[in-house]
Amino acid sequence: MNDAMDFLLWARGTAFDVALTIFIIGVIIRLFEILSLGRPRSLAEPKGNQLLPGMKSVISRTLPDNGTFKRQPLTVIAGYLFHIGLLISLLLFIPHIELFNATVGFGWPGLPNPIVDAATVIAITGLLAALWNRLTNPVMKLLSDKEDYLVWLLTFLPLLTGYLAYHRMIEPYPLALGLHILSIELLLILFPFTKLMHTFTLFLARWYNGAMSGFRGVQS
């Protein structure tokens, strides 16, 4: 009858250890793999600075561009809503910060819970919209493969279970919390081996693109 608590303890204990280990090892391997590919040495004479355009590109590509927005407004809006909402609920929810604190030894101030709660709703809405878009837009549908849906689900579950746990919509609470933790562990385990790696590589890629253009003296 006490399965819920046993489950929570397992999720917080063994399962977390396993997931974290796979995540860390996986991410490091992937980063080594990517970085060790290196960049081909350009023999051309540099026509401009690499650093500033690199940074500029990191920023400009993080901001929405008009063209895409006109073609795919929903993708852009949903994408932004989801990413911002996710970052807020992930990084600024106090129990999460406590977890980071216990893991990495430092923390940072969080946001009041009602704000985090709203951000979670926004993120969930964004994700649902993105899914709807993916399923209804013929081009998107064609472009999507199984991994896209898997990645969507991996991201969606922690948000959903977190929301349900916070609002106590699953009883008993240890079960709710356990499910939430488990969903994150699933995410952690598959993270290094899916598109989710973009979390770590996107700025690298963007900088690289910008830097290359800068090198050639092209406006990025």
Binding site: F16, T103, V104, G105
Partner: peptide, 18 residues
């Protein structure tokens, strides 16, 4: 919310292995 295991130890092992 803090996991029950020895997180920092496990994490450093994982980093080394990684």
């Amino acid at each position: 919310s803090v996991p029950t295991g020895e997180i920092s130890r496990n994490a450093s092992y994982a980093i080394a292995a990684g």
